[in-house]
């Protein structure tokens, strides 16, 4: 969610950085939307498989809650590993 913080922007001047900030803001909005829809899709797929009722059951509800919690804990952990990796390899990736 904050990949922008990971990037090295020291070679840009102030005007360029301001322009990028607007762009980053828009991307963060899009990332949030993708996260929201992707998380719903993931946990719905894993937890809801009974269509004899139109009401979410207690079992399904708990599964969803655990699925979301685990997703964020795993994301946080992988985010830390990612940040560490970016630090050691510089700005990384092909340019």
């Amino acid at each position: 969610l904050s990949l922008c913080l990971v990037m090295d922007l020291s070679h840009l001047n102030d005007a360029e950085r301001r322009q990028l900030e607007g762009l980053f803001e828009k991307k963060q909005m899009q990332d949030f939307i993708e996260l929201y829809n992707g998380l719903t899709k993931r946990c719905f797929d894993q937890c809801v498989n009974d269509f004899t009722s139109r009401t979410v059951s207690g079992k399904e509800s708990r599964c969803i809650s655990y699925c979301v919690d685990k997703f964020f804990k795993a994301s946080q952990r992988l985010g830390q590993r990612f940040a560490e990796h970016q630090e050691t390899t510089g700005s990384g990736g092909p340019q």
């Binding site: 998380l39 719903t40 946990c43 719905f44 009401t55």
Partner: peptide
């Protein structure tokens, strides 16, 4: 039923 459950879960999340 799938749609009803999807909306519910989408809102909770």
């Amino acid at each position: 039923r799938c749609a009803a459950k999807y909306f519910d879960i989408h809102e909770r999340i």
